[in-house]
Design a protein around this nucleic acid. Structure first.
Length: 374
RNA sequence: GCGAAUAUGGUGAAGUGGUUAACACACCAGUUUGUGGCACUGGCAUGCGUGGGUUCGAUCCCCACUAUUCGCC
């Protein structure tokens, strides 16, 4: 069956919504944070640890799996779930973001037909099209496939953005036409940068194509936070109430709050796992860097209120030792904590929505989170 | 006891008679938002073993001392 979304409640004072996603793997509440597992693994964690942190949907990446090990091999393995042994829903990104990060010369490399890039592994010339992206995602057998889009950098001229949005729309249509999969959803992506009329137009036209859900792309590409929040505002109001709304690539705790308040249901981000590998942790009192000397003899957990295995069993002093000694376990313990931190935060956000007190939750959260800067 | 060589930051080390003593590692701090898996950006010797001398000026030249290493007795 296809994954479906059921909205259960709108918060009184904001656009925030509480809902449930029904899937073959069970029901999951929204708003939710989705950990990123680009190459069919959330870096450093195994599926058991993902269940432990109460992960729901996780992400995998079409581009990376296309290159290695190849979609045919994954299909032979029985699909992504079986291949990586994850018994939960999986969303595949389309490879569109690699247009942003790998296509060097936008004018030349991005054509109507598709995008030319160079493999980040061996430099081989590659060509990805909307049809090919959908075909790969079909074979990977994820639960949610994403349309192949262009994610332009920030800033970009109005004219460029307009052309890009039009092309992304044509790509969305082409992808939809070749997508034939009874148990895989397909999401459309709203682009348009910071331009209000382009966001509106992109949203309205994308919705006309009738996707199973909609995401807001083109954020967190270098713009400031105020601009990012505007991009969300300009897009969300044209999206249907009964479909899932996904803000791509956003995972800073404060941005999650602002996103939810603006009507976003799901988020994904590499931040928790990437900063973990670089020795940093989210805490209720802001982000901390375990490299810092001040933690050398700190025998308390990362966060007093966290219920993750890392916080239940290890001290900052030990984790700092692992990080400074370049021991892999350090990154793993931090990854577990950081993912759990965001998921836990979403649990609290859902509770706040149910009780119509999201704004006061936000004020309280920010008060604590920014405390360390005083 | 005699002879020789060397003495530069936490470490390994470049270097020059004259503005800010190279580089690397370590260390310290910051960054990271649809992941190019250990990254990126900064900071870090008011000082060149100690004391004296030569010189307008010495980390660089000279002398003594001290330490280390090697060789000889």
């Amino acid at each position: 069956m296809k994954l479906t979304y059921e909205k259960l409640k709108n918060e009184k004072d904001t656009l925030a919504r509480y809902g449930i996603i029904h899937t073959d793997y069970g029901d999951y509440e929204t708003p939710m944070f989705m950990p990123v597992g680009t190459k069919a693994t959330v870096k450093m964690l195994d599926p058991k640890e993902l269940y432990d942190v109460h992960a729901g949907i996780i992400l995998a990446n079409t581009y990376h799996l296309w290159l290695r090990p190849g979609e045919d091999l994954v299909k032979k393995a029985g699909g992504l779930h079986q291949f990586m042994n994850y018994d939960g829903p999986i969303l595949t990104d389309s490879g569109g973001f690699q247009v942003f990060s790998l296509a060097k010369n936008k004018e030349k490399d991005i054509t109507e037909d598709g995008v030319h890039f160079k493999s980040h592994i061996d430099g081989a010339k590659l060509f990805l099209t909307p049809e090919k992206s959908i075909e790969i995602q079909n074979k990977l057998d994820s639960d949610i496939a994403m349309s192949f889009d262009e994610c332009p950098p920030y800033p970009v001229s109005y004219d460029y953005m307009k052309k890009s949005v039009e092309r992304t729309l044509r790509w969305a249509k082409r992808g939809k036409e070749v997508h034939q999969n009874d148990h895989q959803c397909l999401f459309g992506i709203v682009q348009g940068g910071e331009f209000e009329d382009l966001r509106k137009w992109s949203a309205i036209e994308t919705v006309k194509l009738n996707f199973d859900g909609y995401s807001i792309g083109g954020t967190s590409v270098g713009e400031d936070k105020i601009t990012m929040y505007k991009m969300i505002d300009y897009s969300v109001k044209y999206l249907p109430d009964d479909k899932l709304r996904y803000l791509m690539g956003v995972g800073d705790p404060l941005d999650l709050l602002e996103g939810v308040i603006r009507g976003i249901d799901i988020f994904d981000c590499v931040l928790p796992t990437r900063i973990a590998r670089h020795g940093q942790a989210f805490t209720r009192h802001g982000k901390i860097n375990l490299h810092n000397l001040k933690f050398k003899e700190d025998f308390t957990p990362l966060d007093d209120h966290c219920d993750c295995d890392t916080c239940k069993n290890y001290t900052k002093a030990y984790i700092r030792h692992l990080i400074t000694s370049d021991e892999g376990l350090g990154g793993r313990l931090l990854s577990i904590h950081n993912i759990r931190f965001l998921i836990q935060m979403m649990e609290e956000i859902r509770q706040a929505i149910k009780e119509d007190r999201l704004l006061s939750y936000k004020d309280e959260f920010i008060k604590n989170y920014e405390q360390k800067n005083k």
